[in-house]
Structure formats: structure tokens, C-alpha cells
Amino acid sequence: MQITVKLFATFRQDRFKLAEQDYPEGTTIADVLDALAIAAPDVGMLFVNGRSAEPERRLASGAVLAIFPLVGGG
């Protein structure tokens, strides 16, 4: 199934900004993080289709997954 993965801040280094990627049915966010070699403790925010999500979440075909490191401002 096709997943749109969007990376931000330091996660873009040596990776990409946005990519359409093919994953098997049943893939979780944690599986995508593994595939991208992003360590779980480095993750600050995960959004699936604009809503906050947990790493255990199974992705549906066509999902847009956004992955941020721990960042903030104000």
C-alpha cells in the first residue's frame, strides 16, 4: 500500500522531505520509523492525516504520516 511520509527538521538530513513509499498491509508507524532508521526516543510528534498518533498505530493505504523530532517554540 502507498503511504506518504513527510519528514521535518533534523529528520530530513540524509533522508528526504516528502516521499510516496510502498509498505505491506498492516504496517505500523513503528515499522516505518525502523525502515527510516529513526530511533523512537528521538521522535517528538507523529501525525497521521493531521491527527496526533502513537507508534503502534497501523496505517491505512493512502495515509499521510508526518514525523517530527522533539522541537518547540512559541
Binding site: F8, A9, T10, F68, L70, V71, G72, G73, G74
Partner: peptide, 12 residues
């Protein structure tokens, strides 16, 4: 984070 991207990291 703030050192590198400033507060504008929040746009995305």
C-alpha cells in the same frame, strides 16, 4: 531545536 531552527520550526 531552538538553537538550530529558532521558533519558526513551528510553521510546519
Amino acid at each position: 531545536g531552538l538553537k538550530k531552527y529558532g521558533t519558526a520550526v513551528l510553521v510546519n
